[in-house]
Design a binder for these strands. Structure first.
Lengths: 241, 241
DNA sequence: CGGGCAATTGAATCCTCTCAATTTATGTGG
DNA sequence: CCACATAAATTGAGAGGATTCAATTGCCCG
């Protein structure tokens, strides 16, 4: 009975961890109660407002974080200012590039975000001691790799229409719906961010959104709130077979 | 003295491994002599001609491989035939998606290639026993992730000219030069492959190649052989700051 | 030497971008 | 609570870059 992590006695886990959503899906799930306690002693939990930078391109990384809520965008910028978002991370993803001190990109809160941070060195040490943790980090890296490659196909070979539809489809399937019934959600990204994600301009994103709206594939309220009557139609518009 | 792997006595390592280039940089470097022997018993070494498919999109993966020589392209295809190359792998890279049975893409030999294959289950088991191996696999995954994201910037935000220059720059810095002095090499990919890598058409790739040639950034012989007089100029043409 | 494929070149089209104007949201202070 | 200011998003017209389709040239191998 107590062999299952779910059934751990309350005292066997830090209080903040007990009520933490990220503990189940995140890296913490692989840790022993003793490790959780140690990690907890060095971790800080905080809110980050939308638009705030967590890690800068080229900066050295001293902390890793668990995303507890919200969406974080990872982006790269060229010298002349051209920008490309190379990844979106949702709770309970792990934020940080293991085995590397310097960040090759910027991490910025796309929405209001809650994160739990801990020193890099501590995670590195625990990863050495705990094969399950190293493997969990590996699994997340592989997930990000799969997503990056899926997105390369979108960036390289899809039309503007398909790109925007692909983005909406990805969000629709990653964000918890507002209501149980229909597929309805708030976009975590501005038009400018969506453009940077899709390798398009703001204007093109806007035009394709209105086209999807006029075609009845999506409904839009207040620019941010989107409803998808039929996911399959959106998927088809995204070029997914 | 014999504490260094390089100085292992001959009998402590399979004969084929002793002369294998991949043993140093590849996953094998993390294994003990005993593990090398076991792996060797179940491994097969073979040549693959250019254009041959190693793993198909959607197929289940039963083997992992070390790339001993040559270049392998990883690509994704849409239902209507549009294709995108999402990664290139050079010796001594590891070929295979750990922790996942089904391949989400196609792996195909871009040039004549030599690989050393072993059963998936064996590597998985050794990864569990050997933290160094799991970490080595993780490191390679992270390298691929970094490359994928770098390429997303190229696909999303660079012009055709910059894309082609970026590709040539990547090859120039990944392939061993033919001669010690100048930066000269054979392109491992056809124009069609380059187009699929850059999200362009064959014609556009060709036009940009001739433009780079006329601008004196590159010299081309026999369509495949390229010389780069000044790497910095190529880098500048690629938009690298 | 000639067939066949790969690569180049050309002309016209189309899609996306650029620049500009307008409309719609957001937030602030009176 | 409304008017105003600012930012975000939409819409339009025109330009430009990449694609498409077509023809030609160049290369490799029997």
């Amino acid at each position: 009975m107590d062999s299952q992590q779910k059934n751990l006695h309350s005292s066997e886990m830090p209080a903040v961890c007990r009520v933490c959503d990220a503990r189940h899906g995140g890296v913490c799930a692989t840790l022993t109660p003793a490790q959780l306690f140690e990690l907890n002693r060095h971790s800080t939990r905080r809110k980050v407002d939308a638009g705030n930078e967590l890690i800068g391109q080229g900066e050295s990384v001293s902390h890793y974080s668990n995303i507890l809520s919200g969406v974080i965008k990872l982006s790269k910028m060229m010298a002349d200012g051209r920008q490309q978002i190379v990844g979106l991370q949702f709770a309970p993803d792990f934020l940080g590039r293991p085995h590397l001190c310097e960040s090759t990109m910027t991490a910025e809160a796309a929405t209001e975000t809650e994160i739990c941070s801990f020193p890099r060195s501590l995670i590195e040490r625990m990863a050495n001691e705990t094969p399950g943790l190293e493997r969990k980090l590996h699994t997340q890296s592989l997930k990000e790799l799969d997503e990056a490659r899926e997105w390369m196909l979108t960036l390289g070979r899809k039309t503007a229409q398909e790109k925007v539809a692909s983005f909406l489809y990805m969000i629709a399937t990653h964000i918890d719906p507002d209501h149980g019934e229909q597929n309805t959600f708030d976009l975590p990204l501005s038009r400018a961010d969506i453009a940077d994600f899709l390798g398009l301009t703001i204007e093109t994103v806007s035009r394709q959104m209105t086209k999807l709206r006029k075609d009845g594939v999506i409904l839009v309220e207040n620019n941010r709130h989107v409803t998808v009557p039929c996911l399959d139609r959106l998927s088809a518009a995204a070029g997914n077979d």
